[in-house]
Computed example of a mutant assay.
Amino acid sequence: MDDHPDPGPGPGTDLPVVVGVDGSEPSLRAVDWAADEAVLRGAPLRLVYASLWERYEGTSLADDLDKPSEQVRAEDIVDAAARRAHSRRPDVKISTDVLAEEPEYALVRESRSASVLVTGTRGRSGLAEALLGSVSLVVAGHAQCPMIVVRGDRDDQDRTGPPGRVVVGVGEKQAGSAAVRFAFDEARRRGVQVEAVRAWRRSAHESTDHALMAGEPARPHERQAADALDAALQDVPADVASGRRTVEGHTRSVLVDASRDADLLIVGARRRPGHYGLQLGRVAHGVLHHSACPVAIVPEEG
């Protein structure tokens, strides 16, 4: 996330919201989300198309442009995305770029000078919403700024029910979590509450009918989870409503369940200096594939 102390409305940041576009329907939904995010941050919006291939492979954008897919080029893709963003948010400053390189490398580089990076899911079949595309997965494992992968099919502008909430998974690092700070910044911008969730599991040999496990005070693992939430939320801002919840179960399953009625699910991902492999833990990997709402992956040092 950016270094500006005031994340709310007001003077904007020079760091743009960057969104990767490829002409697919998932990427156009990511443009919608990114345009909204730019308004919330008072930031410019940067649309980036990166590919070594000249021909567009898809039907959605080709139909919109009334062209055969083999005639759709990079300029058509970014122009259509820019028009969509402008139509949704006319007050946002928009820039575009076409890069002749692999999208994974281009977007990771873009993340070094972005306030947040946004992508969609990408699939070539009906499994697009169930499985995350390789580009988004690789970028999520290396991005240097918070990255939001737009999942689900809800549109904030079409919401008719009560405001949702931002859910943040609290991990092993308790105090000073970048993911927790990002969650409260996002909730403040959106005018919703934060729910901090910590999963816990008892050891296989333990049983609820054991004398030492009887009653709430005697559940050590649940107490440890509650203590972790207390530590993570010790410096929460007073102007954002928050709740906390401990749930027994696997962390991935608990967070996926919490995503079903959330606006945004946030998890942290460790960035280890000098390590060049995919820096994405099992929990982050799992929720990226299965969350029912957009997922933010926030880099955590150490």
Rank of each mutant, 00 (worst) to 15 (best):
T96A: 08
H285F: 06
A50W: 13
L47K: 10
R201C: 00
S134T: 10
S125H: 07
Q174G: 05
D97F: 10
A211M: 11
V21M: 08
E101Y: 13
A143P: 03
W200D: 00
A296L: 05
A179S: 10
H275L: 15
P163C: 06
D209T: 15
Q157K: 15
E301Q: 05
V150W: 07
L131N: 03
R271S: 03
R223W: 13
D209H: 11
A179I: 11
G161D: 09
M147I: 12
G126Q: 10
H285G: 01
G8Q: 09
G152Q: 05
A196T: 03
S51M: 06
S259K: 03
V21E: 02
R122A: 09
D185N: 14
R188S: 02
L61H: 10
A225K: 11
S27P: 10
R88M: 01
V192F: 04
A34K: 00
V180E: 03
P44D: 01
T96K: 14
P26T: 09
P5W: 03
A50Q: 14
A284C: 02
G12H: 11
T246C: 09
R244V: 11
A100F: 15
V72L: 06
H210A: 09
L255H: 11
G281T: 14
D14R: 13
V298W: 13
G171L: 08
G268Q: 12
D235N: 08
D91W: 07
V98A: 06
V192R: 04
A262L: 09
V194M: 04
Q224N: 13
L15M: 15
A296R: 04
A43M: 04
G274F: 15
R46D: 08
V21Q: 02
A292G: 05
P68S: 11
A62P: 01
R245G: 02
E101H: 12
R154H: 10
V78N: 05
E25Y: 08
H142E: 04
